[in-house]
Design a binder for these strands. Structure first.
Lengths: 206, 206
DNA sequence: GTCTATATTGCGATAGAC
DNA sequence: GTCTATCGCAATATAGAC
């Protein structure tokens, strides 16, 4: 580790406050003056840590989609039948969107604020991510373990729910993270008419 | 009718082009110069038709939530058991979000761009709208016709899916509007473990 | 690294001629 | 109603002193 200090660096503070403001007001509506004020700096000083406002947005979005893809791959290695793999992937899917709600929300809402080439890269990665889910759904259907109406639209359904969660979930709220994950995973398996959908999920809660 | 002409008025053209641009690039990132250019006007001329940029956003959002509430009330008058009412409300819910996708999308994404008091009004109406759905879900559960895990979160689930649809649905796409509505309604009834969920929906497709 | 300027740009909105 | 021209302002970004 290069910086073993417990103090967050100024650069880190800028990213965090920017994330908070981008989440709250949107990227376009957030001014660098507001970011600077939140950190306790003047606007000019920001430029010792960022190249531009767009660069700051990129920093905030960071490797969030890479992190998500990585965790999805881990989940895919779960042992068990295709439903167990799907359940693990959905667990990861929901958990990630709730745990890192603000970043995820910004990553979705401000996709169009990204420069075209960066946006293209992210879109491709999102597409690969969704394709994994869709393939699992198709496999489950072909194995006779799920009633698939349209794998693409089921995928949309699961993506929509997670995206929505990223807009409201707070760890200190009515539901714990684990409860949330269990509930939405049940929703998904129910939607696919998986046998013993609820029990499949509850069994994993040990 | 005051204006029985088939030509769209300049004011109407401005609203339509603004909606297209707000949908595409977001409200903050859209300039009035772009709107004017899209209509074939110069910036100054816009002000013969609008009071301000915020006023234009208000015009675009218009009474979309009122329209939605009105249609929901019609659906509620559907004869039949609580599941039939719920099915009708969800049908209306999905259909509306797909048919008026751009307006709905703007109404959601740009809620925070609205002045506080206007935003409060809209939020209250949305809340009432969602409460209707939630109550139907609770009723269905208490009647033993549905397996309700958490009525609020089921409602979130249905709201999330419709919101997502508003971001991608195109009438000329792979699915027809009716197919889309039928599919998502099945998703919802499946999620609630309603008996013969698919058949409930198919029966209505006459 | 911080700050106080300031340059530069482009925005929403207005004035006034036609 | 349209236009051209411009005002006033706030934004991003930079320069240079400390």
């Amino acid at each position: 580790m290069a910086t073993p200090t417990l103090q967050r660096s100024t650069a880190q503070a800028i990213r965090e406050e920017a994330a908070r403001l981008f989440f709250q007001r949107g990227y376009d509506a957030t001014t660098l003056r507001q970011v600077a004020a939140a950190v306790g700096l003047k606007v000019g000083s920001l430029y010792n840590h960022i190249d531009s406002k767009e660069d700051l947005l990129l920093q905030v979005m960071g490797g969030i989609i890479d992190d998500l893809l990585e965790l999805q791959q881990e989940a895919l290695n779960r042992e068990g039948d295709v439903i167990e793999k799907l359940r693990a992937v959905l667990d990861c899917h929901i958990r990630f969107h709730a745990e890192r709600a603000q970043e995820v929300f910004i990553g979705n809402a401000e996709l169009r604020s990204l420069p075209a080439e960066a946006r293209g890269l992210v879109v491709d990665k999102r597409s690969r991510y969704e394709q994994i889910i869709q393939s699992l759904i198709e496999d489950a259907g072909e194995a006779g373990l799920a009633s698939v109406l349209d794998a693409r639209i089921h995928t949309y359904s699961f993506v929509a729910q997670a995206t929505h969660i990223a807009g409201w979930f707070k760890p200190e709220g009515r539901m714990t993270l684990d409860e949330l994950v269990a509930m939405y995973t049940k929703f998904a398996l129910r939607e696919l008419k998986v046998a013993d959908a609820d029990e499949r999920v509850d069994r994993r809660e040990a």
